[in-house]
């Protein structure tokens, strides 16, 4: 499972990266990607100020 990222909402702040317990998220040139380490805990979804993430 990986989290789904809506790039049209994402503001590239990497807030999700800072709370991810397994470091599954990475920000490169203002784009977030999520790798297979994701455990679908939803913490990033809750913290995203732009509501750009969903499970």
């Amino acid at each position: 499972m990986v989290v789904k990222i809506d790039d049209s909402k994402c503001i590239g702040c990497a807030g999700c990266v800072s709370v991810c317990p397994v470091m599954a998220l990475t920000l490169v040139e203002n784009k977030i990607s999520c790798d297979a380490k994701c455990i679908s805990c939803g913490t990033c979804v809750k913290v995203c100020p732009a509501r750009a993430l969903r499970l």
Binding site: G15, S18, V19, P21, T43, K46, V47, P49
Partner: peptide
């Protein structure tokens, strides 16, 4: 690692 309680969004 930041936790939800100790951050502001």
């Amino acid at each position: 690692q930041a936790n939800l309680y100790d951050v502001d969004s």
